[in-house]
Design a protein around this nucleic acid. Structure first.
Length: 107
DNA sequence: CTAGTGACTGTTT
DNA sequence: AAAACAGCCACTA
């Protein structure tokens, strides 16, 4: 039985390029719809050179808060997403209605 | 097992 | 809309 972390990383890798999703979705796909906290905890533990597209996982606000983390990481998030084709709003936020990813079954 | 912490989210003021 | 409070889960000591 895979650990919660492995599930989170695995599901995060399923997110197609040019799409984004929130922690709640990943948590739900992992089997715990209210474990968004734990999802963020898992992604936070990821290194820089990881093969997990953590940048495609953002909060309901549309981005990752810079609290407790160097702006370099969060800034990289926007850069990576823009390189994938994701467009940011005037408030540096992503529109889930345009780039939101509900899950592998949703397509 | 108990206590503390956090890349979250929803409800209430 | 912004701030404050409560609920949830997993990791660490």
């Amino acid at each position: 039985m895979p650990s919660f972390y492995e599930e989170v990383y695995r599901l995060t890798r399923l997110i197609p390029p040019g799409r984004v999703t929130n922690y709640g979705t990943i948590a739900a796909l992992a089997g715990h719809p209210n474990a968004a906290r734990a999802v963020g905890y898992a992604l936070r533990a990821l290194p820089e050179g990881t093969d997990v597209p953590w940048q495609r996982v953002i909060n309901v606000k549309g981005h990752i808060p810079l609290k407790g983390r160097d702006p370099h990481e969060t800034d990289l998030q926007r850069v990576l997403l823009e390189r994938e084709g994701v467009v940011f709003d005037a408030d540096d936020r992503v529109d889930f209605r345009a780039f939101g990813w509900e899950g592998p079954s949703a397509g």
